[in-house]
Design a protein around this nucleic acid. Structure first.
Lengths: 206, 206
DNA sequence: ATTGACAGCTAATTCAAATTAGCCTATAAT
DNA sequence: ATTATAGGCTAATTTGAATTAGCTGTCAAT
């Protein structure tokens, strides 16, 4: 298998558990199944490994952003998808969001690492906010706005609705990140939250 | 001034910015205004400094918990306070919560450090969840429950309402933690959120 | 005034982690 | 077949942070 790739993988795993400063190159090497000096055939320093991870992160992020703009950002064009947004649809979407963020292995490690390193560098701060605040809110705000126009939801500030929809999901996810045992409990709360949200904001359907 | 105390203060500041592993005792000493070896007159190791900080954290936490149980946990007894909870009161409470968490110097460093170290130790994971999830939710759920009984708010699941009230506040706070420039923007959203929350859940007052 | 403990300093010392040197094998291209 | 390269290894070496040793001045208590 591709050692160079595997190094990044192992390193990301370790960085996401302990943070850069508490991981030793020997541990990375061990995880890869080689000795520490061999790492230097692939990367010129520990810092270089970290940078490579960041590059990959950025690349994936840009890819994802591009994808979304291609498909998702024009909600009107996309309206087929949302024609029948019921409470159950919203629940599915909330749980889908939650599960994806929580279980996608790369996503999960990436998020933990960013959580640990977020204060150490301005660029990381921004990346974190973009990824876990601005982008999700923008996306959901657009969706909710669309639902409001359809009369499926009450007239109200869609940005704030998005915040109220997303923030609990995100918070529950962080609980699971540090206490995986609580996943069941969090999922239960998540579903209740989404149902209650949908009920509260349901439009004056007849 | 008390050097021993100051060491903890400086160390906490640094740990909250870079994390334990990326802080050198020399930096702590420099912040205190002494040389590194002098630290060892007060603490027997870097780890010992970290532990002392944790001890202090635990102590403050327990103190706070005790205070709350003394005063706050019995909402009925406390009802004087909540007799007249208006939308403005809620806004004030939300902003108060936010501002306290965000600006109290100790609270703030403590939170950042815990954010960085939360995955490194089971006890820290629990402490984090207690402090930034379970406790606030318990408290606010109690309060909301009380408001519901008073007919000030709609009948609904108070636990979920608490989640929907608190999670956005918390999320906005984390944004400010990493991008202090955005405080204005976050405060604006915060206020909108609380007003919208209060409006949405307002009871059928006459 | 002497003593002792406290809290600082400089100058070692220790130690572990990161990195470099240099050797070895496999394999793929010429 | 030869050679070059990639990628592994062991054994240094370097580096720099943590800690210890041991000296000094201050000040409070005897």
């Amino acid at each position: 298998m591709d050692t160079k790739k595997k190094i990044l993988d192992v390193a990301l795993t370790l960085f996401s558990e302990k943070g850069y400063g508490n991981v030793y190159v020997g541990q990375i090497a061990e995880g890869v199944g080689i000795k520490a000096p061999s790492l230097y055939k692939h990367y010129k320093s520990k810092q270089d490994i970290f940078n490579a991870i960041l590059d990959e992160m950025r690349e994936r992020y840009n890819q994802k952003a591009a994808d979304l703009n291609m498909n998702g950002s024009d909600y009107l064009a996309d309206s087929e998808l949302y024609k029948n947004v019921s409470e159950d649809e919203l629940v599915k979407m909330g749980i889908g969001l939650f599960s994806f963020f929580l279980h996608d292995e790369y996503e999960c490690k990436f998020r933990k690492m960013l959580t640990i390193e977020q204060f150490s560098d301005r660029e990381l701060s921004k990346l974190f906010s973009d990824q876990y605040f601005d982008e999700p809110l923008k996306y959901q705000s657009g969706l909710l706005h669309f639902l409001i126009m359809q009369g499926k939801m009450k007239e109200d500030d869609a940005d704030i609705m998005a915040l109220q929809f997303f923030a609990p999901i995100y918070l529950l996810m962080t609980v699971c990140d540090r206490q995986p045992k609580r996943e069941k409990e969090c999922l239960r709360k998540l579903e209740k939250h989404v149902r209650q949200f949908s009920r509260i904001y349901k439009g004056d359907d007849k």
